[in-house]
């Protein structure tokens, strides 16, 4: 059971109020007519499916009904942050790796 912080309501609510809506930050091609079959197929069907940090779109379906973004780990299911539409994530797979690498480094020194 997730306990999700809606950045618009400013509150934690139970998972049942929300629906996951797939990968976040997908941009529709500006000029679909100019797309090749590969570009259009990639836009329609190909999604990131990482085993690790993932950015996804959720909707507060029975709350404020607004869409927002969630950064979540797909193995531990830990929610790392939630942020509003149009914002960029402060936690990414790269930043997580750097944190992990840094803590390993400290471990070596100690």
């Amino acid at each position: 059971m997730f306990y999700i912080y809606c950045p618009y309501c400013g509150e934690h609510r139970e998972e049942e109020e929300f629906h996951p809506k797939g990968q976040a930050h997908i941009e529709r091609p500006k000029n679909p007519e100019a797309c090749s079959d590969e570009e259009w197929g990639d836009y329609l069907f190909f999604r990131d499916n990482p085993r690790g940090v993932h950015h996804e779109l959720w909707v507060h379906a029975v709350g404020c009904r607004k869409f927002f973004n969630v950064t979540r780990h797909t193995v531990t299911y830990e929610i790392l942050e939630t942020y509003k539409m149009g914002d960029q994530p402060s936690i990414t797979a790269d930043s997580q790796n750097q944190v992990a690498a840094a803590s390993r480094q400290e471990g070596v020194r100690a």
Partner: peptide, 13 residues
Amino acid sequence: DGYNGYGQRGSYP
């Protein structure tokens, strides 16, 4: 479960 996951478990709802 509607979200992506590799954890071999899902949500209670």
